[in-house]
Amino acid sequence: MDFHIKYITPDIKLSTYDDKLFKTETVFEFHMLVWFISGETKIIQADKSYLFKAGDIFLIPRNHLATIINYPKNGLPHKAVVMHLTKEKLKDFYSNIEIPEKNIHQEVKIHSFDKHPLLESCLASLIPYFDMKDSFPENIASLKITEAISILREIDKNIDSVLADFEEPGKIDLVNFMEKNYMFNMSLERFGYLTGRSLSTFNRDFRKIFLTTPQRWLTQKRLELAYYHLIEKNKKPSDVFMEVGFEDLSHFSFAFKKQYGFAPSLVK
């Protein structure tokens, strides 16, 4: 795997990936503003999938589970400029801005800005700084992040509902959350955090509700979803295993055969 990241500040980076495919399941602790230079990315969330290509600009909100699959394309590497919109930066930005309470805590989703010229100009202006030998001046970095936030607010009047929401996850309904998000291959600690629980409380609540261990339940649900994709959607095992939460094809094939008595490659 050939993966390179250049930082001009801790919150602004250029990532380059040359291998065939890179997949991760993650929850970002800050909002990510991304501009694609080349390659493709598929982002899978509980209720929707997205495919982003060269030139696309999008915002991934914090504290939301997603499977991210990066691909080189047309002989070019997967390459993107990424800006972290941290809670600290956003609190500073919004410190003198009055936001009505009704505009906060709305539905959070990935926001696509469809190659918007103002955002593209802002992010493209960062490219020369990645080749600088001297450190990137912090005051310029701060201005660039402020510029990006200001443009987002100008082109999306509802973006404050995302950017100005500083609350952490509270204790939520475990059944509803797990039924929507079981396909994400996250640690149990992370599942606990996102449902407002410590690991021990998560395990205790889970056993009480589902009458089994989290790992057994997760494996069962992921195999059921894989079976559905293979039978009903006519997908190939190689196209399914990552989307349902398995790390590699051999582990998926072993678990699938153990559950159903035949290899996933034999599904017609």
Rank of each mutant, 00 (worst) to 15 (best):
F184K: 09
P72E: 05
L21R: 09
F241G: 12
G39I: 01
P214E: 11
S265H: 15
I151P: 00
H84C: 10
V108K: 15
M83C: 01
F130L: 12
F241R: 05
K53T: 09
T219F: 01
L223D: 03
T67Y: 12
T212R: 01
E179R: 10
T86Y: 11
L126S: 07
V240L: 03
D131G: 11
E189H: 12
K102P: 02
F28M: 08
D18C: 07
A46N: 12
V175G: 06
E167Q: 05
L123S: 09
L59M: 01
Y94S: 02
P117F: 00
I110Q: 05
F210V: 04
L194R: 11
D173Y: 10
F252C: 00
A54V: 00
M242L: 14
E40N: 02
S142N: 14
K48I: 04
S112D: 09
P137E: 08
S150H: 02
H64P: 00
F254G: 06
K109S: 04
Q215M: 05
L230A: 07
M32W: 10
M242D: 10
R204W: 15
S150Y: 04
G55S: 02
F93D: 05
F130A: 06
K221M: 13
F22K: 06
D47S: 14
I60C: 11
N185S: 15
I12Y: 13
D239L: 10
K233Q: 11
D2C: 06
P169L: 03
A124C: 08
Y129S: 03
D92L: 12
N181H: 08
K208M: 14
K87N: 09
I172K: 07
M242N: 11
G245K: 06
P10D: 07
I68S: 14
S95A: 09
V81P: 03
K79S: 07
V267Q: 04
H4F: 13
Y193V: 01
S135L: 14
A263Y: 05
D160N: 06
K42T: 01
M1S: 12
P61Q: 08
Y193P: 01
K73P: 02
S121K: 15
K109G: 02
T212L: 00
T146Y: 08
N74F: 10
I44H: 03
L21C: 13
N74L: 09
Q45N: 01
V240I: 07
F246S: 07
P117E: 03
F93G: 00
L230I: 14
E120Q: 12
V175E: 13
T146E: 15
E138K: 15
V175I: 15
V108E: 14
